[in-house]
């Protein structure tokens, strides 16, 4: 509340800005205030808002009333934020798993020079925080002459991050291919490509799909820090809303709930994709 007054009530300062008031004093002064000055455009409206807020909550520390009435006004923005987050996750997930498959092959068959490169890449990205990777890409790369928009940087960071994790996950799956299966496929005169696709990759993905799904969900949740480079995803929208209505707790509480729902949804979607694209046996 103190902050409120400092920001939107410059005309009628109740006390020296920055000097704390005791609870009683605040209540006392606020309750015996002059009616709000007539609207002079701009700040006047805000003034009035602040006064209504104060009238309802004479002392916010004693009686905070939750107020979710702002939700309908921002429903469109929130929906856009959700769409952005989902978009980031879909693109990041698809390309990330693609990089993971390529990486797992290079590591497993030691394709030069990619096998070695992938090893460094995986260790580097798995042992540094996503936020730092994001900052390095968005703030750091321009000094090397590579300028990226916020959304491009966010997608690049997500793809690289998920790529590193899925490389390791998929490699574990590929390594678990029983030797006998390979020999059996060989004796059935499968081509190298057929062996890889049907005997190695598909069963491997089937084995590691739950782990891969969790990693995609973790990456989706991690994408909330993309708001820090002004990617307009869900958390960015939440930050925007709470800076408008000063209802920080309600806004973040609601957004947290939305992320929770999104996590469940994406897990279900991954389950569905796994069931129909990966696990499905080839038609006979």
């Amino acid at each position: 509340m103190r902050r409120c007054r400092g920001i939107c009530d410059p005309e009628a300062p109740l006390t020296t800005p920055g000097l704390p008031l005791s609870g009683e004093e605040t209540t006392d002064r606020l309750l015996h205030r002059q009616p709000p000055p007539p609207d002079k455009g701009g700040l006047g409206g805000l003034n009035y808002c602040t006064d209504t807020f104060v009238a309802i909550h004479p002392d916010p520390t004693m009686s905070y009333q939750f107020d979710f009435t702002f939700v309908p006004d921002y429903a469109g923005m929130l929906a856009q934020g959700v769409a952005y987050t989902v978009g980031l996750t879909v693109v990041g997930g698809t390309l990330g798993i693609g990089i993971g498959i390529a990486g797992a092959i290079s590591r497993l068959w030691n394709v030069r020079p990619f096998g070695e490169l992938y090893r460094y890449y995986v260790e580097l990205f798995r042992n540094t925080p996503f936020l730092v990777q994001l900052f390095l890409i968005f703030f750091g790369l321009p000094s090397l002459g590579i300028k990226l928009e916020a959304w491009q940087a966010a997608i690049l960071a997500m793809v690289l991050n998920l790529g590193a994790y899925s490389t390791e996950i998929i490699r574990a799956g590929l390594q678990a291919t029983p030797r006998g299966q390979l020999e059996a496929a060989d004796s059935l005169a499968f081509t190298r490509w057929q062996i890889f696709l049907h005997v190695m990759l598909r069963p491997a993905l089937r084995k590691v799909w739950p782990a891969l799904s969790s990693q995609v969900v973790i990456t989706m949740l991690g994408s909330s820090v993309c708001s820090q480079i002004s990617t307009e995803e869900l958390t960015f929208v939440a930050n925007f809303i709470q800076s408008r209505n000063f209802r920080a707790f309600e806004t973040y509480f609601l957004t947290t709930g939305m992320y929770f729902a999104l996590a469940l949804l994406i897990r279900q979607a991954m389950h569905f994709i796994g069931r129909y694209l990966i696990v499905r046996r080839p038609s006979r």
């Binding site: 969900v217 949740l221 991690g222 994408s223 909330s224 820090v225 708001s227 958390t235 939440a238 709470q242 920080a248 707790f249 973040y252 509480f253 957004t255 947290t256 992320y259 929770f260 996590a263 469940l264």
Partner: peptide, 15 residues
């Protein structure tokens, strides 16, 4: 496990 750490921190910080 189902919500972002960032929003947990925000909710705690403001809550």
């Amino acid at each position: 496990q189902g919500t972002p750490l960032l929003l947990q921190l925000f909710t705690l910080f403001f809550g």
